[in-house]
Design a protein around this nucleic acid. Sequence first.
DNA 1: ATTGCCGGGTG
DNA 2: CACCCGGCAAT
Length: 197
Amino acid sequence: MDCGAVELSDSSSSGYWSVNRGPRSPAPPSSAAETNGRSATPPDEDLDMDLDQVLFEEPAPRKRRNSLKVAYQCLWPSCGKVLTSLMGIKRHIRMVHLSAQKLTLLTSLGTGVPGAISQCGRAVAAASERPLQVSVSVWYCRLRAPQGTCSLLTAVCLLVRRIRSEAKKCRKVYGIEHRELWCTPCRWKKACQRFLD
DNA sequence: ATTGCCGGGTG
DNA sequence: CACCCGGCAAT
Ligand SMILES: [Zn+2]
């Protein structure tokens, strides 16, 4: 049985933009109807056209949806693939990374090195099996360009974070008044390295 | 209200 | 690189 992993992102990049250009409104009233992204417009390739001329109708983009998902991120150097199932990254690491690594090693060293590289790969694989929390938020911003072109800018943002552990970290342990006692990542508001999960 | 920390800055 | 901080989700 193969329950396929749903792919969230094909790289470690955490977002993408899309601009859906709506129909030209001949005389744009102030209460212009929203353009909706499902209109049959051909793939938009001239994104660089005059984005600097576009006016943002709202002072700030608005977040409309937010959903939380458990996901797993491959921690193989410069990979960062995010998949939504544990079996997915296990298979990804085995197929994409471990097999290729074994091949190059075996060809360069001739004799099979039994445990060394699979030990290294095991460490990466184990670290990649830690569940992460991905919050998916969709942002919308109404745009208006010269000549009454109306569009809706859509941005999907993926925020990948660790699941919160119950462990007390430096800030809680030493207190905000003894910041000099915190570990370096805690001082920088990064993941604590003194009190691990 | 407080805590933990990711992303995105600055020198 | 070292360092700081806004913002966000969890507590
Ligand atoms: Zn710490």
